[in-house]
């Protein structure tokens, strides 16, 4: 089938198998930040934003995202112009192996989009589906709370 989607603001017309999972479609299209950790929707490594909502792309069929807008970690920022959340993850030491970072950044972005002043409990709630075995989560939570503060202060980041 033909799949028309916007990925990170750019239009794509992709020829895909309707049974294909979104994670594979995105990775095949070059968006390698979308990681596979469990293929059952449990670990959050493949989380992407679909029309503003974070979803585990390993349990979303390609056919379900027709005409959707998708955001991956590549769309948040790049090493030259990182998103405030990405910069904050770096500053707080919230990245170790980094494999779960793109997915957890997407969950964090979705949280801050709908709740710009989250409490620690809000952050824990929003990131609970993004498993991390390296960091113990402490620094990740600090990073998200700090990002919220920076965004609130109106510090210019990109996006």
């Amino acid at each position: 089938m033909k799949l028309n989607v916007k990925i990170n603001g750019k239009k794509f017309d992709l020829e895909v198998n309707p049974n294909a999972m979104l994670i594979d479609v995105l990775r095949d299209a070059g968006f390698k930040s979308v990681k596979s950790g469990c293929n059952e929707g449990s670990c959050g490594a493949c989380a992407v934003m679909i029309d503003g909502r974070p979803k585990n792309s390993c349990i979303v069929l390609a056919g379900q995202v027709q005409n959707s807008e998708i955001l991956t970690a590549e769309g948040l920022g790049n090493p030259e112009t990182p998103h405030i959340l990405q910069k904050s993850f770096v500053d707080h030491g919230a990245t170790q192996c980094g494999y779960c970072n793109p997915g957890s950044l997407i969950s964090a972005k979705a949280l801050l989009d709908r709740n710009p002043k989250p409490t620690e409990a809000d952050v824990k709630d929003a990131l609970d589906g993004n498993l991390c075995r390296c960091t113990g989560y402490v620094k990740r939570i600090e990073a998200v709370l700090d990002s919220a503060k920076i965004i609130q202060k109106g510090t210019k980041g990109n996006k």
Binding site: F31, K32, S33, V34, K35, S36, T72, A73, E74, L76, G77, N78, P79, P82, Q86, F89, V90, D91, G93, T95, C97, G98, Y99, N101, P102, L105
Partner: peptide, 19 residues
Amino acid sequence: SLEKVDALGLVCGTQKYVG
């Protein structure tokens, strides 16, 4: 506590893993 040398690439999804 200096910046991890691969950190920006990791959070931006540009660092490459095996697959």
